[in-house]
């Protein structure tokens, strides 16, 4: 406990931190029943603690329904968090009113998963790309030139300015979506599975483009994906999520070579790795992800964990730094410490 707090406060002072996320929660509440309404809480995101540093790409992986996309939307305040703290460059986003938030929106942008649905079919692409600038009153004088430059930057010929989204392929549309996200010159971009809807050959192009842009513009990026190889390729650090919680967070080499959490190990074991010696653990997960309506007691993962022991079914493990820069929420690594403290 002590170590965690010290560690977090030391991170607070660090000016390199762009986003500070503390105990962030999002519970969706649905009411059931006509007369005696019963409240059901879906704990989509249930207590996240991590920092995003300037200039890094933080990958988030996890199964469908683990809260990855909800996390992305929470960080941009597209949805309002139920509880927790969210600081962007020292500004607490949770405290801002609608007007203040709108004024800040150009500093963080989103790239969406489905390029077919994320562009308004009735707007020409020049208008789509110009919209962030129009909204935030940026580049009044050279807006048209900047739209052209942005489109060229992402690899769309500026002769297509007057076309509509349906005239483009999926990969091209995603490029337009990226140009739109860049138009307001954001510092932080959430990419919500930006390549999941694309062909593998196109995926590589888009990933290369994102890598290039990130390096050129010094962007900070949260990259959400369910594909481990995609995440590894693009990320500096990777966070693994399971059932609304982050279970492990470390740099990508560490994660792939020395995963700590049993869930991460299982995930890595599930992808074919060309080097057989890297396969330390061949456990394939049994069972289903428990419903976020009714998560298990103790550790969320205890129902499927091959290494679970009694404590896991009683006490929720803390998300703490096990090794320098390597965070993990698992009792396997806190046993000795806990006993020592006691």
């Amino acid at each position: 406990m002590l170590t965690t707090n010290n560690n977090l406060s030391s991170q607070n002072k660090d000016s390199k931190v762009l986003l500070k996320i503390r105990n962030l929660k999002k519970h969706f509440i649905s009411k059931k029943g006509l007369f005696f309404s019963k409240e059901e809480r879906v704990k989509a995101v249930d207590g996240l603690n991590f920092n995003i540093y300037r200039g890094e790409t933080l990958g988030i992986v996890g199964e469908s329904g683990c809260g990855k996309s909800t996390t992305g939307r929470l960080l941009l305040r597209l949805i309002k968090a139920t509880a927790g703290q969210l600081e962007f460059d020292g500004v607490n986003l949770m405290d801002l009113n609608k007007k203040e938030l709108t004024a800040m929106r150009h500093r963080f942008q989103m790239i969406f998963q489905d390029p077919f649905a994320s562009l308004n079919p009735r707007l020409k692409i020049k208008k789509i790309v110009a919209e962030p600038m129009l909204t935030h009153q940026l580049h009044k004088a050279d807006r048209a030139d900047r739209v052209k430059a942005l489109l060229e930057e992402v690899g769309i010929s500026s002769s297509y300015l007057n076309r509509y989204p349906h005239e483009f392929s999926g990969g091209q549309r995603q490029r337009i979506g990226i140009a739109r996200a860049l138009a307001a010159e954001p510092e932080f971009i959430v990419a919500d599975e930006p390549v999941a809807a694309l062909d593998v050959s196109i995926q590589a192009q888009i990933l290369n483009l994102l890598n290039k842009l990130q390096a050129e513009l010094g962007l900070t990026m949260l990259f959400i994906a369910h594909d481990l190889s995609v995440v590894q390729y693009i990320s500096d650090r990777i966070g693994v999520m399971y059932l609304g919680k982050m279970v492990e967070l470390t740099n990508s080499d560490q994660l792939y070579q020395q995963p700590l959490h049993p869930y991460t190990k299982a995930l890595l074991a599930a992808i074919p790795v060309p080097d057989p010696e890297l396969r330390t653990n061949k456990n394939h997960l049994a069972g289903e992800v428990p419903s976020p309506l009714n998560p298990p007691r103790g550790c969320n993962f205890n129902t499927r964990c091959p290494a679970a022991f009694a404590k896991c079914r009683e006490i929720e493990p803390e998300f703490k730094e096990i090794k320098p820069g390597h965070f993990c929420a698992c009792h396997l690594y806190s046993r000795e410490e806990k006993t020592n403290e006691n």
């Binding site: 941009l76 597209l78 938030l101 709108t102 004024a103 929106r105 150009h106 942008q109 989103m110 969406f112 998963q113 489905d114 649905a117 994320s118 562009l119 308004n120 079919p121 919209e131 962030p132 909204t135 935030h136 979506g177 739109r180 307001a184």
Partner: peptide
């Protein structure tokens, strides 16, 4: 639709 959410994420006003 995603394009409505996209407009929201840009900060476009409700009227627009």
């Amino acid at each position: 639709s995603l394009y409505i959410e996209a407009a929201n994420s840009i900060g476009v006003s409700n009227l627009i």
